[in-house]
Nucleic acid binder design. Structure first.
Lengths: 190, 190
DNA sequence: TTTCATTTGTGAACATTTTAACAAACTTGA
DNA sequence: TCAAGTTTGTTAAAATGTTCACAAATGAAA
């Protein structure tokens, strides 16, 4: 909902709560942790709130990342339009498959894996998204860590080990579905 | 790590904790909520534990779901090999694009959207995975709810409204990446 | 059998998160 | 200006989640 385009310039925690399914008290508390941006009896100025949030999550300067593995998931990531709005830029994409190399998806050229070390060094990139087959993901992470990569966003449902100073986040696309089934079976609204 | 194939037939909460990065006390407590399956001085019998867990999450009978929207994400889901191991079966896939209809991916035929109502009624399916463009997701959910669908697993990063008795889970593939950046910047191990 | 080393299950302590409640601050309209 | 109606930020209470620590149970070795 584009509040800022509706001729409304302020918004209360109650309204934000209704939109996001979060309790108003919670919204006020969270916001209070990062400063006092609201006016009693009025609410939050939308433009100001937006600016503050963008400042906090650092969208002003985009985080540059690479995508390793251009299968279905990799391609979906490359095709995704909202990276800038989320604070990211896909600086490069890599795959070992020669047939994929040279392809340009959404303006991003797919390069060969051998180009990773020089590319990330030249571009100063530290974060990699791994959309690789589960069997080779740990191996790829090891290689990338050697190349100076320090953040790994992993689509394989396995525990990844990294050197100290490196960080991993996994995403398991099935877990939320399992949770949905559980909620459906037990009628748990949330 | 395939513990059960290593000639080891029991495992302690300490070992499970090391493998999963979870504190042993936590593992014991969680397990204790669903029964007493461990032996002091010995640990948990792996086969028994596996059987119990499978019983709990109901893998014995697969949950049948449909996939709506066969773009990159949809295709990735259809290609995923481990659905049965996770307790699911993709019963059908649907897309509005005529060029995709008829294609068979991983043994699953892509059907036209118009076939959804009869299909889910005949097959008795209540859960849909929506890998659709964000703009039309809410609309599709509305339609599917009309068709009797009660669980919605949504890949669009928006709040979805559903009738009472229906349940939604969202997955946002970018949020964990944002969190990774936050951890990297602030050196937060977890 | 007895002793020693493990490891569980859990009660209690501790920590974190969520919610409610309300004084103080602000807006609006008369 | 004043009164009535909103809405914030925050304090305190409640709820939830995590970790510790240890008695009791078991296995293994002597």
């Amino acid at each position: 909902m584009k509040i800022s385009r509706s001729g409304v310039f302020h918004v209360s925690s109650a309204v934000l709560g209704r939109i996001t399914n979060v309790k108003p008290a919670n919204i006020r508390k969270d916001l209070s942790y990062v400063g006092e941006y609201g006016k009693p009896g009025y609410g939050y100025e939308i433009d100001k709130l937006l600016a503050v949030i963008e400042k906090i999550i650092g969208i002003n300067k985009l985080q540059r990342v690479i995508v390793v593995g251009v299968g279905n998931i990799g391609e979906a990531l490359l095709s995704y339009q909202d990276w800038p709005a989320r604070g990211f830029e896909i600086a490069g994409a890599f795959d070992k498959d020669k047939r994929k190399m040279g392809r340009v998806i959404n303006g991003i050229e797919v390069r060969g894996n051998s180009e990773v070390p020089s590319f990330v060094k030249k571009e100063g990139i530290e974060i990699a998204i791994l959309a690789t087959p589960t069997e080779i993901t740990q191996l790829k992470v090891n290689e990338l860590a050697q190349d100076g990569m320090r953040g790994f966003y992993v689509f394989s449902p396995i525990v990844i080990n990294v050197p100290v100073g490196c960080y991993v986040e996994n995403i398991d696309m099935i877990s939320p579905l399992e949770f949905l089934v559980y909620r459906l079976k037990n009628k748990i609204s949330k």
